[in-house]
Amino acid sequence: MEFRAILIALERGRVDYVVVGGVAAVLQGVPVNTFDLDVVHSRDPGNLTRLAAVLRALEACYREHLPKRIEPLERDLALPGHHLPMTRLGPLDVLGTIFGAKGYAQLVDHAPRVDLNDGLVVRLLELADLVAIKRLLNRDKDRAQLHEYERELELRNAMETRDGR
């Protein structure tokens, strides 16, 4: 799994997306592990073309059909569902929408840019929104991590209050 390399591929391909899920949480300071990268992509036609090109370059094919190789197609990426391909750099979950049918257009205003050095800048869904989604989903896997998310948010808010930010 190569998180940075996948993000670089998306950036170089000029794909509009928001990082959500575990990687977004880690980048904001939550000490959890994850083994895939989740992104919500813009479903504007031009972006779908760019995303499909990046996925082809990454040799993406749906994990659920392996070892049969079925590639995500541009028309499929226009749908609001979840696409779970394996790429040559690791698992990349490409999500048309997330909980509450929120797509890129609804999320992007809650997704500040974060500098990952060397010219790599990505948008992440705010931790408060990740917490809200986990509370609503209320699955076992979400409940298992929710305490870490909540304590991190609480601690960060307390530090910002203390520092007058």
Binding site: L27, G29, N117
Partner: peptide, 13 residues
């Protein structure tokens, strides 16, 4: 959590 918050986003990645 305090340790993770002491790191930059790039270091966390």
């Amino acid at each position: 959590i305090r340790w993770m918050l002491s790191l930059t986003p790039s270091e966390r990645l």
